[in-house]
């Protein structure tokens, strides 16, 4: 089943980078791609809310890239976009192209869906490894009063 669109770019970023690049470049060669806003890459201040008083603070700067474009192919047209914590504008451009191509249901849609599935599997594996690492840091406290009881 195809995941929600907001997860496509993140999943594709976790898939095999060479396969993503090859597919996006193949689509780009046969389609017309026009930017709808200037592609941006740079540093962005990441704002977080601390959990004690709930006040906002700046955690630090993160690399960020974003692309918004319109893809037009003989089979259809659609807008595509991607924003990623990355300084790799070429990668984010390719993700935006795949986003538009899947949205337009181009013939390459099954290949894009396969890459998304691959990326989501990689993400799930990373999440599982992190959960395991976090679980190893778990500490059980016993209160003296409980021992006494």
């Amino acid at each position: 089943m195809r995941p929600e669109r907001e997860h496509w770019a993140c999943a594709l970023a976790a898939a095999d980078a060479d396969a993503v690049a090859a597919l996006a470049d193949r689509i780009r060669r046969r389609a017309t791609i026009a930017p709808l806003a200037p592609p941006r890459e740079g540093l962005m201040l990441m704002q977080m809310r601390e959990s004690v008083t709930g006040s906002l603070f700046h955690l630090g700067e993160i690399p960020m890239a974003r692309v918004h474009l319109r893809l037009t192919a003989p089979e259809g047209a659609a807008e595509g976009g991607a924003a990623l914590m990355s300084g790799d504008l070429a990668l984010v451009t390719r993700l935006a192209i795949l986003d538009a191509a899947l949205s337009a249901e181009l013939p390459e849609a099954p290949e894009i869906e396969a890459l998304i599935a691959e990326g989501m599997a990689v993400q799930a594996e990373i999440r599982a490894q992190r959960a395991l690492a976090l679980d190893r840091t778990r500490v059980d406290f016993q209160l003296l009063s409980e021992d006494d009881a």
Partner: peptide, 11 residues
């Protein structure tokens, strides 16, 4: 083939 070519006014 990497980033998008922008119209001249926006470069």
């Amino acid at each position: 083939m990497s980033v998008l070519e922008l119209p001249r006014l926006w470069r």
